[in-house]
């Protein structure tokens, strides 16, 4: 559980610092570079929310 929490919490860091430095293909009207950065806003939010729930459960089970 603890490992899972760490992995889920740290994946967004990788997402934040990786840059897809290219224009093509356009995804949803956005160049890849802009789309990647935007998509990670959503993914980060999802990952952190899940981590938050897991942390809550962990604290509850203590």
């Amino acid at each position: 559980m603890k490992v899972l929490i760490w992995i889920l919490g740290l994946i967004p860091v990788a997402g934040a610092f990786i840059v897809v430095n290219r224009i093509e293909p356009y995804i949803l009207g956005l160049p890849s570079i802009v789309f990647w950065a935007t998509a990670w806003l959503i993914f980060t939010s999802v990952f952190l929310s899940i981590t938050n729930i897991l942390l809550d459960k962990q604290e509850g089970s203590k």
Partner: peptide
């Protein structure tokens, strides 16, 4: 141009989360 994407980097919210 492109480098402006730094203004919406999600890292700013990962740090406070921890």
């Amino acid at each position: 141009g492109g480098p402006i994407i730094y203004i919406f980097n999600a890292f700013c919210y990962i740090v406070p989360f921890w």
